[in-house]
Lab assay of single mutants.
Amino acid sequence: KRPMNAFMVWSQIERRKIMEQSPDMHNAEISKRLGKRWKLLKDSDKIPFIREAERLRLKHMADYPDYK
C-alpha cells in the first residue's frame, strides 16, 4: 500500500469533521467537497500536511525498501 500524500493526510482529518456534522452525507459528496476545499486552501496552510506526507513517504521507504 502506498503512503498517503498531503491531500490524503489532510482529508482524513477533515472527513471526520464533516461526518460528525453531517452523518447522512454520502461519501461521494464528502469527497467532492474535500477536493474543492483543498484547492482553495492556501499553500502556507498545506505545509504541515506536506511535511507529514513526506515523513510518511520516508518511513514507507525505510519499512519497505523493495516496494515499487
Results as ranks from 00 to 15, higher is better:
residue 47 I to C: 03
residue 27 N to I: 09
residue 54 E to Q: 12
residue 48 P to K: 04
residue 55 R to N: 08
residue 4 M to D: 07
residue 5 N to S: 14
residue 61 M to C: 12
residue 36 K to H: 10
residue 11 S to I: 02
residue 47 I to S: 06
residue 11 S to P: 00
residue 20 E to D: 07
residue 20 E to S: 04
residue 32 K to C: 09
residue 63 D to H: 09
residue 9 V to K: 00
residue 24 D to I: 03
residue 40 L to S: 14
residue 68 K to S: 09
residue 31 S to G: 09
residue 63 D to Q: 10
residue 27 N to M: 12
residue 26 H to C: 15
residue 45 D to W: 06
residue 10 W to Y: 03
residue 68 K to P: 15
residue 29 E to R: 01
residue 44 S to E: 15
residue 26 H to Q: 15
residue 5 N to E: 06
residue 45 D to V: 05
residue 29 E to T: 06
residue 25 M to R: 03
residue 28 A to M: 06
residue 47 I to K: 11
residue 22 S to Q: 11
residue 60 H to Y: 08
residue 18 I to V: 04
residue 55 R to Q: 09
residue 60 H to L: 09
residue 27 N to Q: 13
residue 20 E to N: 04
residue 6 A to F: 02
residue 34 L to N: 03
residue 31 S to T: 14
residue 23 P to M: 01
residue 58 L to Y: 07
residue 42 K to N: 08
residue 25 M to E: 06
residue 44 S to C: 04
residue 35 G to S: 15
residue 18 I to G: 01
residue 37 R to S: 10
residue 60 H to P: 12
residue 55 R to I: 08
residue 38 W to C: 01
residue 31 S to L: 12
residue 20 E to Y: 01
residue 16 R to H: 08
residue 3 P to Y: 09
residue 21 Q to E: 12
residue 6 A to S: 04
residue 42 K to W: 01
residue 8 M to A: 14
residue 12 Q to C: 12
residue 65 P to S: 15
residue 53 A to G: 02
residue 27 N to L: 10
residue 19 M to Y: 04
residue 17 K to Q: 11
residue 42 K to H: 04
residue 40 L to I: 04
residue 19 M to G: 04
residue 28 A to V: 09
residue 16 R to L: 10
residue 42 K to G: 07
residue 5 N to A: 03
residue 13 I to M: 08
residue 29 E to P: 09
residue 63 D to K: 10
residue 59 K to N: 10
residue 37 R to Q: 11
residue 18 I to A: 04
residue 38 W to A: 00
residue 18 I to P: 00
residue 63 D to R: 10
residue 35 G to Q: 15
residue 20 E to L: 07
residue 49 F to V: 01
residue 65 P to L: 08
residue 18 I to T: 02
residue 56 L to E: 08
residue 21 Q to Y: 03
residue 50 I to A: 09
residue 48 P to Q: 06
residue 7 F to L: 06
residue 18 I to Y: 07
residue 29 E to I: 00
residue 5 N to W: 04
residue 11 S to Y: 06
residue 65 P to H: 11
residue 19 M to P: 01
residue 57 R to S: 06
residue 17 K to C: 01
residue 63 D to V: 08
residue 53 A to N: 07
residue 22 S to R: 08
residue 24 D to T: 08
residue 62 A to M: 06
residue 33 R to G: 07
residue 29 E to H: 01
residue 37 R to I: 05
residue 43 D to G: 07
residue 65 P to W: 04
residue 46 K to F: 00
residue 17 K to G: 01
residue 17 K to Y: 05
residue 68 K to L: 06
residue 13 I to G: 08
residue 19 M to I: 13
residue 35 G to Y: 15
residue 10 W to T: 00
residue 11 S to T: 02
residue 52 E to P: 00
residue 35 G to R: 15
residue 44 S to K: 12
residue 28 A to Q: 10
residue 15 R to V: 04
residue 44 S to R: 07
residue 22 S to F: 15
residue 31 S to E: 15
residue 28 A to I: 04
residue 39 K to T: 08
residue 31 S to P: 02
residue 6 A to H: 00
residue 59 K to V: 11
residue 21 Q to I: 10
residue 52 E to T: 04
residue 21 Q to A: 09
residue 62 A to V: 10
residue 11 S to K: 01
residue 35 G to L: 15
residue 59 K to F: 06
residue 39 K to W: 02
residue 48 P to L: 04
residue 45 D to R: 02
residue 45 D to Q: 11
residue 35 G to D: 15
residue 68 K to E: 10
residue 52 E to L: 06
residue 45 D to Y: 05
residue 33 R to V: 15
residue 10 W to C: 00
residue 11 S to L: 04
residue 48 P to M: 09
residue 16 R to F: 05
residue 10 W to G: 00
residue 29 E to G: 03
residue 13 I to V: 09
residue 10 W to F: 10
residue 31 S to H: 09
residue 52 E to I: 09
residue 47 I to P: 01
residue 65 P to Q: 14
residue 25 M to P: 04
residue 25 M to I: 13
residue 46 K to C: 01
residue 21 Q to G: 07
residue 35 G to T: 15
residue 13 I to P: 04
residue 61 M to L: 12
residue 54 E to V: 02
residue 19 M to A: 13
residue 57 R to M: 10
residue 34 L to V: 01
residue 18 I to E: 03
residue 20 E to Q: 10
residue 59 K to E: 13
residue 45 D to L: 05
residue 30 I to V: 14
residue 45 D to H: 05
residue 5 N to T: 15
residue 29 E to L: 03
residue 37 R to K: 14
residue 61 M to A: 12
residue 49 F to I: 01
residue 26 H to S: 15
residue 56 L to G: 06
residue 50 I to Q: 13
residue 13 I to L: 10
residue 46 K to R: 08
residue 41 L to P: 02
residue 34 L to Q: 03
residue 2 R to H: 06
residue 2 R to F: 11
residue 21 Q to S: 09
residue 25 M to L: 13
residue 37 R to H: 06
residue 68 K to T: 04
residue 36 K to E: 15
residue 43 D to C: 05
residue 22 S to D: 13
residue 46 K to S: 00
residue 64 Y to Q: 11
residue 11 S to Q: 06
residue 40 L to H: 10
residue 4 M to Y: 08
residue 59 K to P: 09
residue 27 N to H: 14
residue 58 L to K: 12
residue 24 D to N: 10
residue 8 M to H: 14
residue 63 D to C: 05
residue 34 L to I: 11
residue 52 E to G: 05
residue 22 S to C: 13
residue 21 Q to L: 06
residue 60 H to Q: 12
residue 47 I to A: 14
residue 62 A to S: 13
residue 36 K to V: 14
residue 52 E to F: 08
residue 3 P to Q: 12
residue 44 S to M: 07
residue 3 P to E: 14
residue 19 M to N: 05
residue 16 R to W: 05
residue 5 N to L: 03
residue 58 L to H: 13
residue 3 P to W: 03
residue 15 R to S: 06
residue 11 S to E: 13
residue 6 A to Y: 01
residue 55 R to F: 05
residue 31 S to M: 14
residue 12 Q to W: 02
residue 40 L to A: 14
residue 19 M to T: 06
residue 65 P to F: 07
residue 17 K to E: 00
residue 22 S to I: 04
residue 42 K to R: 08
residue 48 P to R: 05
residue 60 H to R: 09
residue 43 D to H: 11
residue 13 I to W: 03
residue 24 D to R: 06
residue 2 R to I: 13
residue 26 H to I: 11
residue 57 R to I: 07
residue 67 Y to R: 14
residue 13 I to E: 09
residue 12 Q to A: 10
residue 28 A to C: 06
residue 45 D to M: 05
residue 5 N to K: 03
residue 43 D to V: 07
residue 61 M to H: 15
residue 47 I to G: 08
residue 46 K to G: 00
residue 65 P to N: 13
residue 2 R to G: 10
residue 42 K to E: 09
residue 20 E to C: 04
residue 20 E to P: 03
residue 11 S to C: 08
residue 39 K to R: 09
residue 3 P to H: 12
residue 33 R to M: 15
residue 16 R to Q: 13
residue 12 Q to N: 13
residue 67 Y to I: 15
residue 54 E to P: 01
residue 38 W to I: 00
residue 4 M to P: 13
residue 19 M to H: 05
residue 13 I to R: 05
residue 43 D to N: 06
residue 11 S to A: 13
residue 59 K to H: 11
residue 35 G to E: 15
residue 57 R to P: 08
residue 60 H to G: 14
residue 65 P to A: 07
residue 9 V to E: 01
residue 25 M to Y: 02
residue 10 W to V: 03
residue 43 D to I: 08
residue 36 K to N: 14
residue 1 K to A: 09
residue 66 D to P: 12
residue 56 L to V: 06
residue 45 D to N: 02
residue 16 R to S: 09
residue 33 R to T: 14
residue 58 L to W: 07
residue 30 I to N: 00
residue 23 P to E: 03
residue 59 K to I: 12
residue 52 E to A: 07
residue 53 A to L: 01
